[in-house]
Design a protein around this nucleic acid. Sequence first.
RNA 1: GGGGGCGUGGCAGAGCGGUUUAAUGCACCAGACUGUAAAUCUGGCGGGCUUGCCCUUCGGUGGUUCGAAUCCAUCCGCCCCCA
Length: 379
Amino acid sequence: MLKCGFYQLIKKSSECRARVGRVYTTRGVVDTPVFMPVGTRGTLKGIANEFLRNSDVQIVLANSYHLYLQPGVEIIKKAGGIQKFNSWNRPMLTDSGGFQVFSLSDTRKISEKGVEFKSYIDGSKHFFSPEKSIQVQKDIGADIIMCFDECIPYTSSYEYAKKSTELSFRWAKRCKEEFCKEEDFHTTRQSLFGIIQGSIYNDLRIKSVYEMLNIGFTGYAIGGLSVGESKEEMRSVLESVVPIIPNDKAKYLMGVGMPEDLWECVELGIDMFDCVVPTRNGRNGQAFTSFGKINIKNSEFKDDFSSLDSDCCCPTCRGYSKAYLNHLVRSKESLYLSLLSLHNIYFMIHLMGRIRESLEMGSFLKSKKEFFEKYYSRN
RNA sequence: GGGGGCGUGGCAGAGCGGUUUAAUGCACCAGACUGUAAAUCUGGCGGGCUUGCCCUUCGGUGGUUCGAAUCCAUCCGCCCCCA
């Protein structure tokens, strides 16, 4: 059996750094480049598994911090792991809680040892260390788990970014040690990915890559991006980081992205993406379409009886008009949460399918150009 | 027939002499959202343009006052209680 998290390169683009490949996991093979929808609490908000499977979702994320708080790891262990608990029989990945160091920055205290969080549920105090995060992620039992890191804000100074990147490095070492502490079920069934930090400072980023490589992980993620920096800054980081991650490893860009980001970052050599945008924006009334993003709440759709996207054959587009979705949103009928989220997930998954296809056919740049021309045609 | 109350922006509802184009909520019009404390958040919401100022608004009309959504009179409309 191939090691969980193993990356197999299938085809490298001759036009750019983009590549087609596979990531092997205990619960199945993931075709890359891949978009991984986020189901923080063990579910994609508003979408049942059946719809995800039919939409060709290959792998989903969950968050160890959220699941640790609720329902707690004991329940998940008792259920036999997250995939038994939530009945998702395809691969899963858990985030370590590192992003919460960033997103819950008002209610947390950080030290060498780890991070003290105040629960967003009841205000109670909880301590997450690298060791704790790995233990929790082992108990949750997803196929791919992540190092506990500090995701810092875009506005961080060079000095803070340097200190933080060094801290994340020391934490990564501890994560690896904890993960490999005993040769057990987990070390053969799960794989641990390292996370490269360094903010927008390329020298810190490069140093971070070499440090992570030195520790040695099954795959490598790039964290701390899409936190407010410009597209040029993100591009610059990826251009300096991606080429020095070995090509026999999966390269995962955390928290990205929007449809346009997918094309841009695949071009730069990224294999894996995750993002909350399809579900969150869907719940806020936004739909991604081949012709650009639209807000279905807007008055122009009140009597538009066409589907969201004439190029889409998702259940939402097959069954419902813009006018009806507009009505559901305006009258706050909860069905729109599912219908819009599902459409957006389908859009992202199928966009990625199209990207893979274009890479296989050697026409990535042409397809990218076609996509952008249409995507920005609305305005 | 007798007594009392009320009429405020699309709706609900504050304000009860000057800081009032008039709180707040809803509705409406937009925008944002990138490892989810998000079915959330932000802005706009009388008219005009030279974008700072001007004009117009609190049922109607007429008064009092330097000044009225706020006080008085009257008309119109609505509600409640007693007969």
